[in-house]
Nucleic acid binder design. Sequence first.
DNA 1: AATGCGGGGTC
DNA 2: GACCCAGCATT
Length: 370
Amino acid sequence: MPRHTPDDPDRKLLAESGRALLAWYDRNRRELPWRGTKDAWAILVSEVMLQQTTVVAARPYWERFMARWPTPHDLARAERDELLAEWAGLGYYRRAHLLMDTALAVAESHDGALPRTSEKLRELRGVGDYTAAAVASIAHDEPVAAVDGNVERVVSRWRAIGGDPKKSVAKKAIRAAADAWLSQTRPGDHNQAVMELGATICKPRSPDCPRCPLAPSCRARAAGEPQRYPETPPRAKPTPVTKVGILARRPDGRVLLERRSESPNAGFLELPQRVVETTAMPPTAAQISDACNEVASAAGLALTPGVTLTAHKHSITRYRITVWPIETAASTRRRPVAPFAWCRIDDVDQPLTTASKRILTKNAPSLFAS
DNA sequence: AATGCGGGGTC
DNA sequence: GACCCAGCATT
């Protein structure tokens, strides 16, 4: 028993809104390098990069990446460290590892090509529902809705869908609405259009409704408060974390770095640092001394803490991290034990975390002289 | 300076 | 479903 007939008002509304959306997209879409291709690998790489950064930041990384590794096979043949070094500065480095895993899996798979369906793409490491749908719809016109944060916002407003989109009830309702709405003729463009609308017009705090192609049929707008959707529960306050960072330099311009073997920042070089349980800002001399001794013993060096430098703050998801860099004198005769090493930081092949790079740039600019 | 956001993995 | 990942744009 078909519930929809050709002149069902619902169906008509969806079709009209879809046309308005695509017409808007055709006039207003940003020209981006990965929008000129139907190559699934190029699109996958762009999607993975865009998961964690803005278009502006990701763009040069994507250009370099594609020039260097134009197919999954090219990446599969590369050293993991080369990828990490190329990814340095983009953040959320775990995704680089997952992309490497995917390249290796694809290179070893039957035909050595990326799967063509969203269902199969979904099985790759680092590829979830959103990314699988985005790649399949954009590269192969598979009619599957790609629902990211932008789409959640646009759809929940347009249809006035209440509830927390992170929870399954609202999530399902939003997905159902997005699926029903999806253009069957241009699914890839439709998906990109909704995301583009969310990024440029239907923004989280200040939606620009007068310029929105969906305004005539938008229920949240009709209700007068588009910002009320989607419903977002208050977040927990970030946990403060205090660290002591050991800044030890040699006269030859090398600096003591520690290579992380575990998450977070697995495979990356960092200033040796240790968490301190403290309320003192800066930490007390005893706490600094403890952290220093810990690093000294792990590295097999003698370290003597000196001046406490200006704190560096950065935050991630639910931690607010304060690092106190300590100018430290080191015994330079002995070779440090792995994973510690005296490193040149103007050596571009070394993957250095953004936080450590900033601390070093601020406190030891001469190390970047080259 | 404080706030808000983001997709995927894992258990 | 809760928590982790190890930043950045917006306000």
